[in-house]
Each structure stands twice: as structure tokens, then as C-alpha cells.
Amino acid sequence: MTAILLISSALFCAGVYGLLSQRHAVGVLIAIELMINAANLLLVGFGWRTGGAFGQSFALFTMAIAVAEVVVGLALILLMYRSRGDVQVDQATELAQ
């Protein structure tokens, strides 16, 4: 179990690193996916440890949601590209205005 936890947290932290260091919006999306994967791994891992179908069921749900999220995210990236002409996350500072 420790192994799964360690691997999962390592993956998650890799995702965090990506999330903070990526400039391209798609890169950010990848990082998020990676983190979701780490979470999924954890779900499956705990499901494996305690038995029963709950871990896998929720992992499945998460997967579906993640896919949906990617779709919306991509649509947003497209929109961002259309309205701003680039997809640089560090350039998009409209929130400050």
C-alpha cells in the first residue's frame, strides 16, 4: 500500500510541478490530467486494499469526468486562442483588471 501511495503522490507532485511551470494552456491541461491520474490510482489502490467495487466504480466516474473536463478545457483553450491570439497562461492576466 505504501508503494501505491508513494507512487501516487509522486505523480501528483509531478502534476503540480507541471501545473506551475507550463506556459502553454494545453500543457496545463496535461498536468491536470496527470494529477487526476494520480488520484485515480489512489482510488483504485484503496479499493484494492479494502475490497469491494467502490474504488473502481469511482475511478470510472472520475475518468468520465476527466474526459469531460478535457473537452471543456480544450474548448476554452480554443476560445482563448480566438480571442487573444495566443494560449500563454502567464500572459492571461485579465483577472487582475
Binding site: Q22, R23, I77, Y81, V87
Partner: peptide, 19 residues
């Protein structure tokens, strides 16, 4: 999907993806 996204935004060519 993501590869499509990258293609659509044509950003990868002249700029690095990381900061």
C-alpha cells in the same frame, strides 16, 4: 484530443511549452 488542440492553436512551433 489534446494533440488536436495543439494542432488547432498552432502554438507549439515557435514557443516553448514551459516557462
Amino acid at each position: 484530443l489534446l494533440i488536436f488542440g495543439v494542432m488547432l492553436t498552432r502554438e507549439h512551433e515557435h514557443l516553448g511549452a514551459v516557462r
